[in-house]
């Protein structure tokens, strides 16, 4: 089974967020870029499938600028992916999630696959567009957000649970297929020291920007971020002074109705 897992470098979740000087994006100075969240769960799922299906191979693919993108591909290799493809994004080349999906499609078309795994969304911009848009471009079905993907060898289908409001659907689907993974349900593994060292010696394949541009045309991305800001800081709660619990309840309900206007 040929498994592709698409990942994206995102700022370490503990990063203190700061807008850049122009207020148009995150200030990336000193930011540590990591493989985490939904993508980490997607890699873990890919590796679990690889272990369950004899003869399987996992290739990690990431689109983004150097060197952060190469670094997270190395993280994926250290975890047990067999190969990696870096889809080049030259610095200063504007992009958006739909553009990223198009670029990744070019890379996916260069390699055989049965299943493409992708995080339901990235932990930074939370767009949730890449997996479904990529599937459309490849002309195959996609399902998300899913957990617990298994291979039904007899039926030659993947089975999984797709989260919907109020519960989850059991779904089975034939290959080729895109699945968009939920995060933090499969306790992603930690790389072993030996594999971290070995991963540094694996050559990463590259899809150049020229190849990408040839595949997706030169039109500008359909959206661009004009501002990045922090929400106004919450200044702390208005504390309810009271003598009895009943008084606290009455005061709180009055505030919720008359000031916050969240109770009818």
């Amino acid at each position: 089974m040929e498994l592709l897992v698409l990942i994206k470098p995102v700022p370490d979740p503990e990063t203190r967020l700061r807008p850049n000087a122009a207020g148009t994006n995150l200030d990336t100075d000193g930011v540590k870029w990591v493989l985490t969240g939904y993508d980490e769960s997607a890699v873990e799922q890919a590796l679990l499938l690889k272990e369950a299906i004899p003869g399987s191979k996992v290739r990690a693919i990431a689109f983004g600028p150097a060197p952060r993108t190469e670094e997270i591909l190395r993280s994926a290799l250290a975890l047990g992916c067999d190969a990696a493809t870096w889809v080049e994004q030259p610095a200063d080349t504007p992009t958006d999630p739909m553009r990223a999906a198009a670029a990744l499609t070019v890379a996916c078309q260069k390699t055989p696959f049965d299943l493409i795994l992708v995080g339901k969304q990235a932990l930074d911009d939370e767009a949730g567009l890449v997996g479904p848009a990529l599937a459309e471009r490849l002309g195959i079905a996609d399902y998300g957000p899913v957990v617990d993907v298994r291979w039904d060898a007899a039926g030659r289908r993947f089975t999984f649970a797709r989260a919907v409001e109020g519960g989850s659907d059991r779904v089975s689907a034939p290959t080729p297929l895109v699945v968009c993974l939920q995060q933090a349900w499969n306790d992603p593994r930690t790389a072993k020291l030996q594999n971290v060292l070995k991963a540094r010696r694996i050559a990463i394949d590259k899809v150049t920007w020229a190849e990408v541009a040839a595949g997706i045309g030169s039109a500008a991305p359909g959206t661009h971020v004009t501002a990045f800001r922090l929400p106004p800081p919450r200044t702390g709660a208005k504390m309810i002074e009271y003598r009895t619990p009943d008084e606290a309840a009455q005061k709180l309900v009055r505030l919720l109705r008359e000031e916050a206007k969240v109770l009818p």
Partner: peptide, 17 residues
């Protein structure tokens, strides 16, 4: 899930959330 797929199909820009 629909937004990205539909935008790719309809050749449109997309914004989620």
């Amino acid at each position: 899930e629909l937004v990205g797929r539909l935008a790719a199909r309809w050749e449109a820009a997309a914004v989620n959330g």
